[in-house]
């Protein structure tokens, strides 16, 4: 079994016709027959099912578009108004009676048929239920704390204490007296940045703005 890799490396060495290469290949390349076979097997991609001739001895249309983002001009079923005829077309296309094997129609089925949520892909964030547990007195005490010592009772600490989001804290109370101080601190930090860091941050900001433009 040990001689196999050398014999496999030999044809390459013959092509390159240099003794150094063959030596390197024999020392570095440790590919076994088993791994080679597995790699080849993995690289052997099956043709798309739409290419297989399901109908016998008849001409048929192959519809196998390249994978791409769906067009924004195709209004999703949920966004169609009540009287639109496409509602009926979509629902009839997604009904199991008209079963077809093309991939896009299968995707449409996945979109439009009511599937259990277990079949849906995983959510990015775990969905959080809103608690609505804070009362008027809680909010009043939150405001008191924030007004008494805004440096001690920051938004993060108040959010942890009252078990709400920082955004909700910002809705309830704000501390304008430390706002300029914080901005000054941030400016000091930014002034210490060099050219590369500043430009990288600006570029990142620019890229973020381009997300909404879909560029």
């Amino acid at each position: 079994m040990n001689c196999n890799p050398i014999s496999r490396a030999l044809p390459r060495a013959k092509l390159s016709s240099s003794p150094v290469n063959s030596l390197q290949a024999s020392t570095i390349c440790r590919r076994h027959e088993s791994s080679y076979r597995r790699t080849q097997k993995r690289l052997r991609v099956k043709p798309d099912p739409s290419f297989t001739n399901t109908t016998t001895h008849q001409d048929h249309i192959i519809f196998n578009p390249p994978s791409s983002a769906p067009s924004v001009y195709h209004t999703p079923l949920k966004f169609l108004p009540k009287g639109d005829r496409r509602r009926d077309l979509y629902t009839s296309a997604s009904s199991p009676s008209s079963s077809s094997h093309t991939t896009t129609q299968q995707q449409q089925q996945q979109q439009s048929t009511p599937t259990p949520s277990a079949r849906l892909p995983p959510a990015l964030k775990s969905p959080t239920e809103k608690k609505y547990h804070l009362t008027e007195s809680d909010i009043a005490s939150m405001r008191e704390l924030r007004a008494a010592d805004p440096r001690q009772w920051t938004r993060v600490r108040l959010a942890q204490r009252f078990e709400c989001s920082e955004f909700f804290v910002s809705l309830c109370c704000h501390a304008p007296e430390i706002k300029s101080e914080r901005e000054q601190q941030l400016e000091d930090i930014k002034r210490r940045w060099g050219r590369r860091k500043t430009e990288a941050r600006q570029d990142r900001q620019r890229r973020k703005e381009s997300w909404g433009r879909d560029e």
Binding site: A69, P70, T75, P81, R86
Partner: peptide
């Protein structure tokens, strides 16, 4: 984040670019 924001923008375009048949 980028994919999420792009997906939301595409959904909004799907709403706004509706065209009657």
């Amino acid at each position: 984040d980028e994919a999420r924001i792009r997906a939301a923008a595409a959904a909004l375009k799907g709403w706004y670019l509706y065209s009657p048949i």
